[in-house]
Design a protein around this nucleic acid. Structure first.
Length: 498
RNA sequence: GCCAAGGUGGCAGAGUCCGGCCGAACGCAGCGGCCUGCAGAGCCGCCCACCGCCGGUUCAAAUCCGGCCCUUGGCUCCA
């Protein structure tokens, strides 16, 4: 089976065919850098990353672009907070830096480009001019609006008729518009002080008047780009007029993505994106996770607490396009699955490193299980990136390894185990899981110390002082160090997070 | 109100596009056994699902059609 994806544009699962059989143009609607990224963002990132990795696995060259929106009232609202920066662009850059650090700590592949709105104003102005020239946009009081009635297919992504689309919004702004659903391509003047005020954190003293934000000269006077136009301008600049895949959060379907389609296709007369993929959102106990609600766990906190592998296991525990429950229990389950993978991996590697592994035994059951798992993984990923099924294939490799180690006594199937380990590394790698990254300097030292304690404990055990031995084990457990006794001596695992 | 996506075991979550292999995957929790000084891990086995409700199509439906109920997201900044 070849790769199939669910396309929001058609509402159907379709075979994936890029324009160029060797390249995939992938654009992801990135974030507005006005707050630290939270796990909701991470969920989308990880799924986009897995798509990227799988497409590469299928042999495509992936040209992957993710934007940063660095022009926004919310960013201006942070000016003067802590040490974020003295103006809009400084605040934005400081969040961009943090965001990229978070992405790296989540083991995300780098995008080819991370364009910023502030660096693309000339392209945005050009695009707006084109739209005016072609009769799709009009100027009003120094602002420019897209005329939704001029674009016949408006509403095709979100499946709405124009007559159904209500517009609330600022009444002043509305009076400048011909149709209530018209949206701003260019906004006259500087930042909106009310909007800045609205997004300020409570209890933070910014002192004095709201700071100025960035503005640019344009044919319509001083102003700033509208929200939607940036993605069109940036994706066209870096990837051309027609994208293969455009990914974003489900909450962006309307109006953002709808507007992107309208302005892009009106300007180029070309299809803007062939496949629209939308990541579903976390479902909290009561509410979704959102910056504006403040009920988020930041990516940095999550990594600190659980580590990248557990997080990635958790974030891929559901399909990208179905909602996922966020709770302590669901994270704990993901942690358990990751632990199982890691334990099996380590047990296999340890066996491979031991002299016993030189035996020539063959375990067909093991080998078949690994081959089946690879096939199942491939089928799962090709079926609209079904990461949960893919995890299940991975777990079946772990089970096969454990079974073999259990059954084989000393006659290990060296090549079979080798293949199993490779499968875990390769397939796990597609999900961005990493089996070898946990030995930082401090972890190594910690390991030496733990081994010392275990030696002491072994002597206690040999002397029959089990009470003392159990105490030591419990104390290590309290530090998050898991000790397991076996025939050939104890093994241990340090807590995740490194 | 309108648009969209969902409702599957105690939990979580695949399967629904292309009806039968689904007597429903994987994981967690629970139960029994092996192993073990004990514990954990691991292995083997088991328990728990008439797949939201009602009706229809069919030899056959979790999967198709119709109606209803409920949940979530969007319609306003949002991954």
């Amino acid at each position: 089976m070849t790769l199939h994806v669910t396309n929001t544009l058609t509402g159907e699962k379709e075979p994936f065919e890029p324009q160029d059989p060797e390249n995939v143009l992938l654009y992801y609607c990135g974030l507005t850098v006005s707050d630290p990224p939270h796990l909701g963002h991470a969920r989308s990132w990880v799924h986009v990353d897995v798509m990227h990795r799988w497409l590469e696995q299928l042999g495509y060259d992936v040209r992957h672009v993710e934007n940063f929106t660095d022009v926004n009232e919310k960013i201006v609202a942070r000016v003067g907070e802590d040490d974020l920066g003295a103006d809009e662009s400084a605040v934005a850059e400081s969040y961009v830096r943090r965001t990229i650090e978070d992405m790296r700590s989540l083991n995300l592949l780098r995008a080819e480009v991370y364009p910023r709105v502030s660096e693309h104003v000339p392209e945005i102005v050009d695009l707006v001019e084109t739209l005016i020239e072609k009769g799709y946009a009009y100027e009003s009081n120094g602002s420019v609006y897209f005329d939704v009635t001029s674009f016949e297919e408006y509403g095709k992504l979100s499946n709405q008729e124009l007559t159904e689309i209500e517009s609330q919004g600022d009444p002043d702004e509305r009076s400048e518009k011909r149709h209530p659903a018209d949206f701003a391509l260019w906004k006259a003047g500087g930042v909106d002080p009310d909007a800045v005020e609205e997004h300020r954190h409570e209890g933070v003293d910014h002192g004095g008047d709201p700071p100025e934000g960035l503005t640019w000269d344009s044919p319509w006077g001083e102003g700033r780009p509208g929200w939607h136009i940036e993605c069109s301008a940036m994706s066209m600049t870096h990837l051309g007029e027609t994208l293969d895949i455009h990914v974003g959060g489900r909450d962006l379907v309307f109006p953002h993505h709808e507007n992107e389609i309208a302005q892009s296709e009106a300007a180029t007369d070309q299809q803007f994106a062939n496949y629209w993929l939308h990541c579903e959102l976390f479902q909290m106990d009561e509410e979704k996770m959102s910056s504006s609600l403040g009920n988020f766990v930041t990516v940095a906190e999550a990594i600190d607490r659980w580590g990248a592998n557990v997080m990635r296991t958790f974030l891929t525990a559901g399909s990208y396009n179905s909602q996922q429950l966020y709770s302590d229990e669901t994270i704990a389950e993901a942690e358990e699955r990751w632990d199982q993978l890691e334990r099996a991996y380590e047990a296999a590697v340890e066996t491979l490193d031991s002299p016993a592994a030189s035996s020539k035994a063959e375990d067909q059951t093991l080998r078949e299980a690994v081959a089946d798992a690879r096939e199942a993984f491939r089928t799962a990923m090709n079926d609209d990136f079904n990461t949960r099924e893919a995890q299940s294939a991975l777990l079946s490799v772990a089970t096969a390894i454990n079974r073999h180690l259990e059954d084989a006594s000393d006659e290990y199937d060296y090549r079979g185990l080798r293949r199993a380990v490779e499968a875990l590394e390769e397939l796990g790698g597609v999900l961005g899981l990493s089996f070898d990254g946990s030995t930082t300097g401090s972890a190594e030292l910690a390991g030496d110390v733990v081994e010392l304690v275990l030696e002491v404990r072994e002597r206690e055990r040999e002397a029959g002082n089990y009470e003392r031995a159990d105490e030591l084990r419990d104390e290590l457990a309290a530090l998050g160090i898991e000790v397991q006794d076996a025939d050939d001596g104890p093994t241990y695992r340090l807590p995740d997070g490194g």
